[in-house]
Structures are given as structure tokens and as C-alpha cells.
């Protein structure tokens, strides 16, 4: 039983990161129909930038906002330089563009940073808290709490602010959004910036636990995408549930079966679910947008 609890805690922690990556996918996909495979690179940029700024002697509480800002600028540049010029291109073309952008960002990070693994100091120390026999790292609370705060802020943004509703309106009907005076190009750019910030925060929160390096983005993008698909592409609630589910599957698979196959186990279960529910847990019945 303590084992099970232990696996759940570590699964939920890493699942919260997948959920944030999946939310980033969802926000951009809804606003622009683009599946942004560079989403994982924002996580890498957040973690790596914080590591290198703190290594230069800057205190963590200044380094973190700076790293988030750096990711947001890169998100904006990604939209302006890579996505916007290809407006009107097919979904496949746009996906290939984002894959290209992610390879570019990874290569850039290898030059700007380095090829080593790095860690950040845990925000509130490394002494585990015992809960029902499971040792929980204080940083896990940061990850889960941070994810919860982001989800709450996003909920408020999309339900209570006019700009948030303009993003939803753009997602629902781009033509009508333009006809009521919404600058849809701004909205799509904004959604890239927002997703970049969310990814970067996830990367910073989890860096003390999982380590970070220039090439963590690709697998995170894949897991986050799988989580978004599992929950139902385009559904924010689905992204959260999907992310936590992928994290739990991985941790339980690694704990009870074999840690060698933890990635495979997660993907096999996702495939099985999608055979039965092609739209994911909360997906729309139709798949016209794909």
C-alpha cells in the first residue's frame, strides 16, 4: 500500500507537468488549429534558462521570471516568424513547421547552453514529507500546487475576462471573431505566448526533481500530445485529466512491471483507449478538424 501511494505521488507529479504541456497544446490548437510540437521546447527553455541565469549568480526569484519571459519571447517569435507566414497552409504543413522549429530550438539550446544534465535546488529543501507511508518531496507540492494555480488562473482568464472570451471566440469561429473586431492574428500570437509561459513554468517547477537538459523537449512534447489526445484534443479539462493519467500510468507501470518499459506501457494503454474512444475521454464526437 505505501508502494502504491508512492507511485501515485510520483505519477501525479510528473503527470502535472504532462498536463501543463497538454494544456499548452490545447490552447494553441483551439486558437489556431496548429498542433505545436515545439511545446516541449518551452519546458526545456524554462528549466535551462533558470539554471544558467542562477549559475551566473542571479537569485532564483529573479531568474524564474526572466526565464518565463525568455520562453514567452521565443513563443512570440515562433508565431511571428514560423507560423504566421504560413497562414492558410494545411495542418500537416504547419505540424512539420513546428517539428522543424523544435529541432531548431533544441540545436540552439545545445549551443547557447550545453549538453549536460542540470538540476535546480529544490525550492523548499529536500526533506521528504511522510504521507501514509509515502515519502513526498516538498518540490512535488510545488509542482502540483503550481499546476493547480495555473489551471485556476486559466479558468478565470477564459471565463471572466473579455480577452479570454475573445480567444474562445476565435477558436469557435474565426470569421465571426474577425467580424466583431477581434484581431485574430493577435489572439493566435497571444495563445503562443501564453502556452510558452505555461510550458516554461512547468519546466522550472519540475527541474529540481527530474533534471533538465537541452533535449528533454521532444519526449515531453510527445507525452503531452498523447495526454491531450487521451483527454480529447481541444478540451482543457481533457488535457489535465489526460496528463495526470499518463503520469500515473507511467509511474505505476514502472513500479509494478518494469521501469525499462515505462514509456512503452503508457503509450500502449493510450493506444488501447483510443481504439475504444477515438475522440479521447472528453473528445467531440466528430473528427472533422483533423
Amino acid at each position: 500500500m505505501p508502494d502504491f501511494l508512492q507511485f501515485c505521488v510520483s505519477g501525479l507529479t510528473v503527470g502535472a507537468v504532462y498536463a501543463l504541456v497538454a494544456l499548452g497544446f490545447t490552447i494553441i490548437y483551439n486558437a489556431s488549429d496548429v498542433v505545436n510540437f515545439a511545446q516541449g521546447e518551452f519546458v526545456m527553455i524554462g528549466g535551462m534558462t533558470t539554471v544558467f541565469i542562477t549559475a551566473a549568480g542571479v537569485p532564483l526569484h529573479f531568474a524564474i521570471p526572466a526565464a518565463i519571459l525568455a520562453a514567452m519571447v521565443i513563443g512570440l517569435l515562433l508565431h511571428r516568424l514560423a507560423i504566421e507566414p504560413a497562414r492558410g497552409a494545411s495542418a500537416v504543413t504547419l505540424i512539420i513547421i513546428t517539428i522543424g522549429a523544435s529541432i531548431f530550438l533544441r540545436g540552439g539550446a545545445q549551443i547557447v547552453f550545453d549538453k549536460q544534465f542540470h538540476s535546480l535546488p529544490a525550492f523548499s529543501g529536500d526533506t521528504p514529507v511522510m504521507i501514509g507511508g509515502a515519502a513526498v518531496l516538498p518540490q512535488s507540492f510545488w509542482v502540483l500546487g503550481g499546476a493547480a494555480v495555473i489551471v485556476a488562473l486559466l479558468w478565470f482568464f477564459f471565463n471572466r475576462t473579455l480577452l479570454g472570451k475573445a480567444v474562445l471566440a476565435t477558436a469557435a469561429n474565426r470569421l465571426a471573431a474577425r467580424l466583431v473586431g477581434i484581431n485574430t492574428s493577435f489572439v493566435v500570437g497571444f495563445s503562443f505566448v501564453l502556452s510558452a509561459a505555461i510550458g516554461a513554468i512547468a519546466g522550472i517547477l519540475v527541474a529540481p526533481i527530474t533534471l533538465t537538459s537541452y533535449d528533454i523537449g521532444a519526449l515531453l512534447a510527445l507525452k503531452g500530445f498523447a495526454a491531450a489526445m487521451l483527454g480529447g484534443m481541444g478540451n482543457p479539462l481533457g488535457a489535465i485529466v489526460g496528463g495526470l493519467a499518463v503520469g500515473l500510468l507511467e509511474a505505476l507501470g514502472a513500479g509494478y512491471i518494469s521501469s525499462t518499459y515505462k514509456d512503452a506501457i503508457a503509450f500502449i494503454v493510450i493506444l488501447a483507449v483510443l481504439f475504444v474512444l477515438p475522440g479521447g475521454f472528453f473528445g467531440r464526437a466528430s473528427t472533422e478538424r483533423v
Partner: peptide, 13 residues
């Protein structure tokens, strides 16, 4: 119309 949004949100937009 913006189908998933509420009627009031449609008008507000």
C-alpha cells in the same frame, strides 16, 4: 455565432 459560448458572451463580444 460562437456556438460554445453563452448567449450573453456572444452579445458582449
Amino acid at each position: 455565432i460562437f456556438s460554445p459560448l453563452s448567449i450573453e458572451d456572444n452579445l458582449r463580444l
